[in-house]
Design a binder for these strands. Structure first.
Length: 206
DNA sequence: CCATGATCATTA
DNA sequence: TAATGATCATGG
């Protein structure tokens, strides 16, 4: 299996900027909504393929430690802004309790990240044009990171004080602990990047 | 069965 | 439109 470095992944992805991910999904044999059932994760899967990652990168495999994320953008008053928050990583109650921010999966994923801006054209979008590919390296002393760490600590503290169940999406200024699960009764939580943070990241990365 | 990809639905 | 919570397809 080929090792795809972050630089290579970005390079691969940049070749597709401006193209419609839908046709690329079909070319790669990835189900989108063609079957009548929407696969909400198809864009992410396509992007992973295009980057050269033939298998999926789930958590933090041995060796490869960058994250490939896509964000839906839409227009607000003639400007392109992130429409939705972006999932960062799952929250493991035990780990959140035990690890500080800089030891967390959240930080590990955030600090070496590859973003893909994808155009969003409404529910069950039939087009998904790749707008931009960018990457970002955070430094531990960035002002932004300090604030994100504060959010992490806030959420972590709440977990310790009130328990996993007490967490809500309202916590945090830049990141939040939203529910996210298989969706059949069982519920787990994940760190999400708020749209403002996504916007900020793009500003920095450009 | 559940973790991961991320979007959809609902309410204000 | 924005914010929060719920859900779906896929793969292991």
């Amino acid at each position: 299996m080929k090792i795809i470095t972050r630089a290579v992944a970005i390079n691969n992805l940049k070749k597709y900027v401006g193209q419609d991910l839908r046709v690329l999904a079909l070319a790669n044999g990835i189900t989108t909504y063609e079957t009548g059932k929407q696969n909400k994760g198809w864009k992410g899967l396509v992007l992973e393929r295009l980057a050269g990652l033939q298998t999926n990168i789930s958590k933090a495999p041995n060796g490869l430690t960058y994250e490939l994320k896509s964000v839906a953008f839409h227009h607000v008053k003639d400007k392109l802004v992130p429409k939705e928050t972006m999932a960062i990583t799952m929250i493991n109650p035990g780990e959140l309790n035990a690890h500080s921010f800089f030891e967390s999966h959240c930080w590990a994923k955030l600090k070496t990240i590859v973003f893909c801006a994808v155009e969003w054209n409404g529910t069950n979008s039939e087009e998904a044009k790749l707008l931009k590919v960018t990457s970002l390296d955070f430094a531990e002393d960035d002002e932004l990171i300090k604030e994100i760490k504060a959010d992490y600590d806030l959420i972590r503290n709440k977990l310790i004080m009130h328990g996993f169940e007490a967490l809500t999406g309202a916590d945090g200024k830049w990141i939040q602990a939203r529910t996210k699960g298989p969706g059949h009764g069982s519920v787990s939580r994940a760190f999400y990047a708020r749209t403002d943070l996504v916007k900020k990241i793009f500003e920095i990365a450009i």
